[in-house]
Design a protein around this nucleic acid. Structure first.
Lengths: 219, 219
DNA sequence: GTCTATAAGTAGATAGAC
DNA sequence: GTCTATCTACTTATAGAC
């Protein structure tokens, strides 16, 4: 409540920057506290453990992002039955441009993607908890826009969309190299348009000849 | 040259299993050597450092996989101008089913994906070295199948395809949960068909209205 | 080539003064 | 709430016997 930034936030800010760049296992609490300008013991006082720091970093950004996703979906459904492109946009845009300024956005994007790829069991669990209602909601809306797809196939394709989103956010340096700088993921609007076009076409693709995903009882 | 497996291979096998499950930073050399049943010092004798172990694990699988990709592309081009679906298959199939039996395949898939997502700088570099000729080759073939796309746009979309592939290979557990078990990435053929259908449609998608990727000189 | 023993450094977490 | 000092455990890496 004082004028200067709270220790807790200093830790979270530094953690976000460092975790997104080097991964959770690649950053020690000592590196973290040095970067944040706070004392090592203060981290344990405020968070209790490194694992709790990771969870807090995660929750601070992912929850608003998912609220934004659901809000965009609400707005779309108020105006009628949404197009596939619009649904994909609601899924992708909040991840690409939630943060305001550019360096913060890039940090945040990499953080999301990195946390999604982290091997630690507690993170995988946390992710599923945070995402399950988002997944359920998008599945229903996608299914009403794509009635010919089974429930399982819709979910599989949604997973593809999340995959290319995460991969784009995480590996911005390779994208720039691959495209000789012409496609920069830091350019959110261009990236968004490209992802939406690609992903919407993929969602609408014909079901392959060996539709294993239809055989189960999950249709 | 003795009857039993060489120490070097024991280390590489254990490293592949452990790295793919917990990430490079999540596995110590002690855990590794214990799992492999070899002595800690033997690792330094044979490899010199942990970093060299990682590189060796990587090279053992990625090089044959990329050779397979280029061979499939050769075979396709011998028979005429390949379809988008065929090119995508050449890019994706070697990753999904190079290894023979199922547990080994899953381990290998996760290894590839994990290494691709690893933050360490030397791994990013190594990946680019191994992949640059594959990328160049696929770009040319894709462009001849999709002449309306700019070079940069082709590369961006190829990156999307690799992204959903990596994500699928890495997060097989979430896919099973998302789809209530109906879509199992361990079922390589079903997964392959789904990816090819989705990715080919994405590659063929119309170029979005704001084609930032066309403005540069990289067309 | 393989081992034991150990160096030299870093990890997360705590106790207790202020 | 924040600090110093420290504990315990684990990390990579190496020296040197066999």
């Amino acid at each position: 409540m004082s004028g200067r930034a709270a220790t807790k936030d200093l830790v979270l800010d530094a953690a976000e920057a460092l975790f997104s760049a080097k991964g959770v296992d690649g950053v020690s609490l000592r590196t973290l506290t040095k970067e944040a300008g706070v004392n090592l013991a203060a981290v344990h006082y405020h968070f209790g453990s490194k694992e709790e720091v990771v969870k807090a970093v995660f929750a601070r950004r992912i929850r608003p992002m998912n609220r934004e996703r659901l809000a965009m979906l609400d707005a779309l459904e108020d105006r009628g039955r949404p197009e596939v492109e619009e649904i994909v946009t609601a899924l992708v845009a909040p991840a690409l441009r939630l943060a305001g300024d550019s360096p913060a956005r890039q940090r945040f994007m990499r953080l999301c993607a990195r946390l999604y790829s982290e091997p630690a069991e507690y993170l995988q669990q946390l992710y599923m908890e945070e995402f399950s209602q988002v997944i359920d909601r998008f599945e229903r809306v996608f299914r009403s826009a794509l009635p010919s797809l089974s429930r399982a196939e819709v979910r599989r394709r949604m997973h593809f969309v999340v995959g290319l989103l995460v991969h784009t956010m995480l590996n911005s340096a390779p994208v720039r190299r691959w495209t000789s700088g012409a496609c920069d993921p830091a350019d959110a609007e261009s990236t968004l348009a490209a992802i939406v076009s690609f992903a919407a076409a993929g969602m609408r693709a014909p079901v392959p000849d060996t539709p294993d995903c239809v055989r189960g009882g999950v249709t």
